[in-house]
């Protein structure tokens, strides 16, 4: 690689200099081109050709397949639920360790463990929830063990969750497991915004006679809205692309889009590989929309809570 020497005030014409400068980034761009851009584009072009290579839109017909529609709806449902639940939970926790004045040591632990748990997913997370809330999990065992003598002498154990329709290997279980990495992500991303809330605003609104409720409704929530929305969208995308936890927890019995694509890679369950590419393309479109919306809202948020 030819690298120009550092020459301040060089007599090179600007565009020649610029060319050499950009050339320094060539190894990186080449790597990304070969191992990221080409494979992705290859998938996307695959969505628009027939098996003999002619252009077609017929593969998009996969989105009329009831199984595919169901997979998308289930994925959207899980992602929305965990974004809302994880988002609210995470917001309250972040509130507690910032504005809420929880003891300092608690704040340290929460932030540290959020950093760890937000990155914790995959197969071990599924095992952890099986060991905790599965049929033989320890919380299940405790709840099942709470028994009273019934009227007819038989033990009466009203708290076994599995007698009340609870099942870990289901959508509910998936939401519980995803929340494990969703709420810490909310804590991490929303804490800076909450730290941007000035104590003076609270005092100013109090001196004008505002109640706590009015302060939150008219001052804090409007300022925080872009951050909260942005982070929720991020959580949505985070859940939407997840595969390993769902696969390990439910063995693929819940029809998420990611699970469906996995089955398509292994065995072409759609009977047409090109429809599989169209399905994957649909996921990327949804993810791209979420990330764009996230960064737009983040920019908005940083404009308001800049300290």
């Amino acid at each position: 690689m030819t690298t120009p020497r550092l020459r301040p005030g060089s007599s090179h014409p600007w565009h020649e200099q610029t060319f050499w400068n950009w050339l320094g980034l060539a190894p990186f761009f080449l790597f990304v081109l070969v191992f990221l851009i080409v494979p992705s584009l290859n998938l996307f072009t695959g969505a628009f050709v027939t098996s003999s290579g002619d252009f077609t839109l017929a593969n998009l017909g996969v989105f009329r397949n009831p199984n595919v529609i169901k997979a998308y709806l289930t994925s959207l449902q899980v992602s929305l639920l965990t974004a809302v639940i994880g988002g609210l939970f995470g917001f309250f926790v972040a509130y507690a360790v910032t504005i809420g004045n929880a003891p300092r040591w608690m704040r340290g632990i929460i932030i540290t463990f959020s950093g760890l748990a937000a990155n914790f997913g995959g197969v071990p997370l599924a095992f952890a929830f099986i060991a905790t809330l599965g049929r033989t999990g320890f919380i299940t065992a405790i709840l099942r063990g709470i028994c009273f003598p019934g009227a007819d002498g038989a033990a009466f154990c009203p708290f076994n969750p599995y007698d009340h329709g609870f099942n870990l290997y289901s959508l509910t279980g998936l939401v519980l497991a995803y929340t494990y990495f969703q709420f810490p992500l909310m804590v991490l991303t929303i804490t800076p915004a909450l730290e941007g809330i000035r104590r003076e605003w609270r005092e100013a609104s109090a001196s004008l006679g505002a109640s706590t409720w009015q302060y939150w409704r008219d001052v804090a929530i409007p300022v925080l809205t872009p951050s909260i929305l942005g982070t929720s969208i991020l959580l949505f995308g985070n859940a939407f692309g997840a595969y390993a936890t769902a696969q390990a927890l439910t063995g693929g019995s819940i029809p998420l889009v990611t699970i469906f694509i996995g089955q398509q890679i292994r065995g072409d369950v759609l009977g047409n590989p090109h429809e599989g590419y169209a399905m994957a393309l649909g996921m990327v479109v949804i993810m791209a929309v979420t990330i764009v919306a996230y960064s737009a809202l983040q920019r908005q948020a940083s404009r308001w809570t800049r300290s």
Partner: peptide, 24 residues
């Protein structure tokens, strides 16, 4: 109110950990 949420978060962090360790 703040303590309540921190405690819930602690439980969510540690119960599955404990459950796994106990089970193993």
């Amino acid at each position: 109110w703040a303590i309540f949420w921190v405690v819930i978060a602690f439980l969510y962090f540690f119960l599955p950990m404990y459950g796994t360790l106990d089970f193993s």
